[in-house]
Amino acid sequence: MSIWEYANPVKFMRTSGAILPWAAGAAAICTTGGLLWGFLTPEDYKQGSTVKIVFLHVPAAMMAINIWVMMLAASLIWLIRRHHVSALAAKAAAPVGAVMTLIALATGAVWGQPMWGTWWEWDPRLTSFLILLLFYIGYMALWSAIDDPDSAADLTGVLCLVGSVFAILSRYAVLFWNQGLHQGASLSVAPGERMSAVYRYPLYLTMLGFFLLFLTLLLIRTRTEIRRRRLAALQAREMRA
C-alpha cells in the first residue's frame, strides 16, 4: 500500500471523511486553548499587552508561507505524476493561504502602530508578505479564469513553480532594497534571543492549532472541489451521450 493510493478520489473521500471530525476537534481545542492561554500570560515589560498579538501574528505568518510550500509540492505532484486530487488540493489551499497572509499583515499593522508608531512600514518582512499576497491573488485569479479544469491545473501548476522562484528572489531583493525595523525570527534557536518560556509554550500550542485548522479547511475544501468535479463530470458525460 503506497501513499499514492490516496490520489484515488474515492479513497481520498473515504479517508478524509474519517479524519475530518478529529482534525476539526483538535484544531478547535488547540487554537482556542492556545489563544486563551496566551491571553492570560503576563504583560511584557517593554511591549505591554500588545505582545499578545503574537499569538495570532506568528502562527498566521508561519502558515502563510507553509501553505505556499504545500501548494508548490502539490503542483509538482500534479505536474509529474498527474494525480488529480493533488491539483485540487493546491487549488483548495490557495484561499486559505491568502487569508493567513492577510491575517499576518493585519495583525502586524495593529501591532506596528503602538510599537513603531506606524500602521505600515516598507520593511523587508512586511513587503515580502505583501508580495506573497500578490502571488496568492494571481494564482487564484488564474484558476477562476480558465474553464477547462485540465488546462487550469497545468497552467496554475506552472505558475506556482515560476512564482515560487520569484517569491524567493523578491524576498532577497527586498532585503537588499531596505533593511527594516522588524525584529528577527521570533523563534530563533540562538540563546539569548529566545522568547521567554511564558510566551513560547502557548505560542507553540496556537501554531499547532493553526496547522490543524489549515488541515481541516484543506480537507473540507478539497472534498468540496472533488464533489464539484464529480458533478461536472456527470454533466459532461450526459452532454456527450
Binding site: I131, L134, F135, I137, G138, A141, L142, A145, L159, V162, G163, F166, L169, S170, A173, V174, F176, W177
Partner: peptide, 15 residues
C-alpha cells in the same frame, strides 16, 4: 489577468 500575473514577477528587476 496578464498584468496581475506578470507585475509581481517584475519586482526583483525593478528593485
Amino acid at each position: 489577468l496578464l498584468s496581475l500575473l506578470v507585475l509581481p514577477l517584475y519586482i526583483p528587476t525593478l528593485i
